[in-house]
Simulated assay, not measured.
Amino acid sequence: MPVENKIILVVGASSGIGLTIAQALIKAGAEVITASRHVSDELKQLGTKHIPLDVLQLDNELQEQLPNKLHGLIYCPGSIRLKPFERLPLEDFRKDLELNVLGAIQVIKAAVPLLKKAEGASVVLFSTVAAKLGMPFHTSIATAKAAVEGLTVSLAAEYASANIRFNALSLSLTDTPLAGQLLNTPEKSETAAKRHPLGRIGKTQDAAEAALYLLSDASSWMTGQILHLDGGMSSVKLL
């Protein structure tokens, strides 16, 4: 993928999908800047420039810690709160919206002036299959991620003339630390795999490969798209 020498900010790179994306970008020759609240041992090993960042308490100093231009931005922070609707307090909805939507908005606001300077940039956000496919107990996260999809297409329209592309990856269950409680036994993992037409759950590498495509010049004519990376969950029904 042609991302060599591109300067790309990966927010939420301490583990899971964000860490795998950062690793893949470095391997592909990109200059990666990572940002996260925690710094894992794996992240330390990457040797990237790192910005301590809590997206829930973002101030105006982020832009000052970034280079004078960016070719790409990946926003990976996410949450999984699976409860019956009647047991979901309003605070859970608020937390999901703050992390998934408002955090992304604040980071994008800081990055846009720098993305404009690249004269061709890409932003990748993350959604969930549950935003379109009704799934029990997903009310809070589906609501937040549906807002992410609306944000994606709206910004794609607004910044097309500036040659900044906005796309999102809509994922089904992926093997990450965040999903640990859903996959903490062989039986749970097997059951989750069987729900997907392709017979397995997602890997972080699946998301990383798709993200690299969206960040690269190979996708330069793609914007405002929600790509469903879900093992066929959202579109295929097996007989």
Rank of each mutant, 00 (worst) to 15 (best):
L115M: 14
F93V: 10
F126P: 09
A104V: 06
T139K: 07
I108D: 11
S140G: 10
L125P: 03
L99Y: 00
K132T: 13
A111Q: 03
K95V: 10
V148Y: 04
L102Y: 07
L151G: 05
V112D: 13
D96C: 11
A142I: 00
E158D: 13
A118H: 11
R94A: 15
S122D: 04
K95E: 14
F137A: 10
L125Y: 04
A160L: 01
L151Y: 07
E158S: 13
R94H: 15
N163M: 05
T143W: 01
L125S: 01
T152I: 10
V123K: 07
E86I: 15
G103F: 04
F126D: 06
G150D: 13
T139W: 09
P113C: 13
P113Q: 09
L99C: 02
L133Q: 12
A146E: 02
A131W: 00
F137E: 09
K117Y: 09
S140N: 11
L155S: 06
H138V: 05
K145V: 11
L125T: 00
T152P: 13
N163E: 05
A121H: 12
P89F: 07
K95D: 05
A156D: 03
G134W: 04
A147S: 07
E149K: 05
H138G: 04
A147N: 01
K117S: 14
L151Q: 06
P89K: 08
E158R: 11
L97G: 00
E91A: 15
V101M: 03
L102C: 06
A118F: 11
A156L: 00
I164M: 08
G103D: 08
L151K: 05
P113F: 08
I164D: 06
A142T: 00
L99S: 01
E158P: 06
K116T: 10
M135Y: 12
K117C: 13
I141E: 01
A147L: 00
E158L: 07
S154H: 01
T152L: 06
K145P: 10
V101L: 10
K145C: 04
G134T: 09
L90P: 02
H138A: 11
A142Y: 00
S122W: 01
I164K: 04
S161N: 09
L115P: 14
L125C: 02
S122R: 03
P113E: 10
S154F: 02
L155Q: 01
A162W: 07
G103A: 13
K95H: 10
L88C: 15
N163K: 11
S161C: 07
S161T: 05
L155A: 02
V148H: 01
K109G: 01
F93Q: 07
A131I: 00
N100K: 04
E98I: 02
L155F: 05
T152W: 14
P136R: 08
